[in-house]
Design a binder for these strands. Structure first.
Lengths: 203, 203
DNA sequence: GTCTATACCTTGATAGAC
DNA sequence: GTCTATCAAGGTATAGAC
């Protein structure tokens, strides 16, 4: 199956929804936005995703898959390196004026259906689990240094990554670099160099 | 003018809009929500705020006033104490299931009118200015300890406060306490004790 | 699987009487 | 300053033909 194959409609819808959520937020995009880009009718989208919540849940589901894949593929890497690669993914998003799903969806939490709320909880916990795992791994490898439980530290790291995207869009791109520099220094590791064109990384 | 005086309609509208933004987000609340609570008609709200952007700008304007007032009223306090009082305001919000305006509005930035975008930038910068000022003051007073520029550190502090509200709602209230404990420890100061019923503090 | 067509609701907003 | 009445636009969603 060549990688140039046009993705199945269903897949394309989810990808577009993901982008729109990261640009405008879940409550601000519509089926018409997606239909317009794909040049199909409104109803075609509803065939694949009867309700908007179904679509939202699928978008989150894909993110969960990416997290699982990232954990597997990078399992051999040191903890600090994994953290930096996760950050690189955030860098990519920041240059596209996009924010992460956590930063986009958690503010709207109260407006979601119970099923979607539950899926969002799942996603946040999966990401935190991974970050905590990387931090603990790095601490054992003596390349990362911090006090307290890795799980609590993961909250601060995720928080900084998430906010760096929110604030970059409003205050300018250098916010991302300044925040990540500070964050890595806090963790006692060397600053990272962000690459402009990276193969569209995680999260 | 007794404090029991019913606030002017205009003021009440802005207060309700503020609450709704913190609960559901700017794009998810409607004039009808406010009209319903106040038991007036839709058009009455439009009389005071012709467009929704006008209302949003007023809500942000009030936040700017609160920041200015906070800086003035607490100017005599040590930097670390000011930081803790700002955090107490966030604690209050967290117990009401609310998030801060920065956390609610920045994700929807791209959907706002240019005027509202500009006002939001103004707000973020005012808050960052204040936090940076407190941090620098605390460093000079030798009660706060951190490396790097106060302005960059302020980004991390605001980021943690903002995210603690986003994540508390999704993952449970103890997230707030765990994050603030870590954050204060990072700044080399003693943990704070949050008071359940505080006189509805800032931000 | 996609289309046409449409139902139904909510939204932000306006005009004009009181 | 608030009301009634109304509007156009856009939202989610469904039915049924192809």
């Amino acid at each position: 199956m060549p990688s140039s194959t046009k993705p199945a409609t269903r897949t394309e819808i989810v990808e577009l929804a993901d982008q729109l959520i990261r640009l405008k937020g879940f409550n601000a995009f519509s089926y018409a936005d997606i239909a317009g880009i794909m040049d199909v009718r409104n109803a075609a989208i509803h065939y694949h995703f009867p309700s908007k919540a179904d679509l939202g849940i699928s978008v989150i589901g894909e993110e969960l898959k990416r997290v699982a894949a990232g954990r597997q593929d990078w399992a051999h890497l040191p903890g600090d390196e994994q953290i930096k690669r996760i950050m690189q993914g955030f860098f990519d998003k920041s240059r596209k004026g996009m924010i992460c799903l956590t930063g986009s969806l958690t503010p709207d939490y109260e407006t979601f259906s119970p099923e979607m709320q539950h899926k969002l909880v799942e996603m946040c916990e999966a990401i935190l689990d991974w970050v905590a795992y990387c931090l603990e791994k790095g601490r054992e490898e003596r390349t990362l240094h911090f006090h307290g439980r890795a799980r609590d530290r993961a909250l601060l790291v995720l928080s900084a990554m998430l906010s760096s995207l929110l604030l970059s869009r409003v205050l300018g791109n250098n916010v991302f670099d300044r925040m990540m520099d500070q964050l890595l220094k806090d963790l006692g590791t060397s600053p990272a160099k962000w690459v402009e064109k990276s193969p569209d990384w995680l999260l």
